[in-house]
Amino acid sequence: MDSKRVLAENLRQNIYDLGKTQAAYAKDIGIPLNTLEYAVSGRGSVSLNTLDKIAQGAGLDPWELIRPPEDK
Rank of each mutant, 00 (worst) to 15 (best):
E70I: 15
R43V: 12
K72S: 12
A55I: 06
L65D: 06
L48F: 06
A58P: 15
G19D: 01
G57L: 07
L48V: 13
G57M: 11
P68M: 08
D2I: 14
S3H: 01
L33N: 02
S41H: 02
G57Y: 00
I54G: 01
W63V: 13
A39K: 01
R67F: 07
L65G: 10
R12P: 11
R5D: 13
Q22L: 02
N34A: 12
E9I: 09
P69G: 03
K20M: 10
Q13Y: 06
A39T: 03
M1T: 07
V6W: 05
D28V: 09
E70V: 15
L36E: 08
G57F: 07
S41L: 12
K27G: 10
G44E: 04
W63F: 15
A58D: 15
G19F: 09
P32M: 12
T35D: 01
K20F: 02
K20Y: 12
N34V: 15
Q13S: 08
K27R: 06
W63R: 04
P68N: 00
S45V: 06
N34D: 15
K53S: 13
G30S: 03
E9R: 08
V40N: 00
S3D: 13
E37N: 14
L65N: 04
D28R: 08
L51S: 02
Q13A: 09
W63E: 08
E64F: 02
R5P: 01
I29Q: 02
A26T: 07
S45W: 10
K72T: 14
K53R: 11
L11V: 05
Y38F: 06
A55L: 05
A26L: 06
A23G: 11
A58W: 06
L36D: 13
D28N: 09
